[in-house]
Amino acid sequence: MQCQQCKQREATTHIQRVVNGQAEEFHLCAACARESGLINEFAAPPFFNLSDLFSGFLGSSLRQAPAALAPAQRCGFCGSTLHEITQSGRVGCAACYNTFREVLEPTLARIHGALEHAGKTPAADPAVHARKQKEQALAALREQIAQAVQSEDYEEAARLRDEIRRLEGTQEEGGNDHAA
């Protein structure tokens, strides 16, 4: 298969992913993949040039952005502007994610297909205690469901499942594994 960028060399880097229900495919040779930044697999964006795509996405969200977030607004901590973030494809600091959240989120949702972290939380950060408590509450609810099912109290089980769904947001699908 030919590299779709240079149309000369054989494509050896194949990336396919689904963004908003649309499958996108990329077939690149090693040289073009390296050129595009794909060779650094950690930064591996599913596209030729991160800043192009990022700025493309961001550009379209910017047009609908509230006037308060003009491209010239600076992050109070690191001094980055949206324009700079868009150009470089790099976010300036942790605070930038807050400052520009409204504008960044639609773009992040398009890149990741999700906007809710599901993984590890830092040990030392008090801000994550709420999440930990939530996880513990969920575990307790699941146990209660198992008990309700065992005592054939299906109304209670359904109520608990709704509660879990409410806590979790839209994550859970089916959820029959405890009733089985």
């Binding site: 599913p46 494809g89 976010v91 972290h117 599901a118």
Partner: peptide, 11 residues
């Protein structure tokens, strides 16, 4: 809490 570990590259 929502975005997880914050990284320089949003990917």
């Amino acid at each position: 809490d929502h975005l997880g570990y914050l990284t320089q590259c949003p990917t």
